[in-house]
Design a protein around this nucleic acid. Structure first.
Lengths: 127, 127
DNA sequence: ATACGGATACGAAGATCTTCGTTGACATTA
DNA sequence: TAATGTCAACGAAGATCTTCGTATCCGTAT
């Protein structure tokens, strides 16, 4: 029963880096982070330490420069985030959420057909 | 240029009540709120005061019991929330978000076909 | 050994969120 | 008019978030 808290904005930014890069040291995360925001090295370090306490990441201390990894796969965490928003704002109705998503960021034609493919898949499943 | 900050969890809960009930007094909001969570009257009051400062709600002070209204329509605020999550977590790709939504909360057959209808609509639009 | 450089640990400050107790204003009623 | 009850205002406490400065540890090169 390993339930992790919802990551904060800053934490999510770091998770995204870890998902993309794989296992990384603080320095690597910080360098990546710096591209977008101007934050100090110790800020990244502190966040990673807190995220370790929360169970959002895992730390390998066998090397001098500790190596951090996201504990949950990207899909799972993003699914939780969406599910959370679904509950908090949409009364659990995915169709309402999808409607808002498509209106707020009009999808390309490719995306639309990709979504259709997913719908076909889902319908096939629970038939 | 009326940009409102992203509502917090507690603020969103109140907005949802206001969208559903329409203009409401603190007492009414509190009674509604109490159904789910056990929070005090002054908590609801304080939240509504802060939300007024932030511009999330508007206050009519002409009566002794002030009357509060959500400043933005539900669709717009939810659209902002989804757009925000889209940027923070999905690199703006709505199809990826839709995929996560449908996997994390399998939709009913009715919802699925409703989503299809929306897709048809969208495709029709930007053709 | 010593000094240097790169790394983590610690602690703290300021902002924001959530909650509530207390106070004072004001209207209704006895 | 005095008592009672309802309401908003205020302030504050505790939690969490975000950010850093400083201290400390430790390997490596002198």
């Amino acid at each position: 029963m390993t339930t992790t808290p919802r990551p904060t904005d800053a934490e999510l930014a770091i998770l995204r880096i870890l998902w993309r890069r794989g296992p990384s040291t603080v320095r690597q995360v910080h360098e990546d982070l710096e591209r977008r925001s101007l934050t100090g090295y110790t800020t990244a370090l502190k966040l990673l330490q807190i995220m370790t306490e929360k169970g959002l990441v895992e730390r390998d201390e066998s090397q001098r420069a500790h190596v951090y990894v996201a504990r949950l796969p990207e899909e799972q965490t993003l699914g939780q985030l969406v599910g959370d928003l679904l509950d908090r704002a949409f009364e659990g109705s995915s169709s309402r959420l999808v409607m808002r998503a498509l209106e707020s960021r009009p999808a390309t034609r490719e995306e639309l057909s990709e979504i259709r493919r997913m719908l076909d898949l889902m319908e096939g499943e629970n038939r």
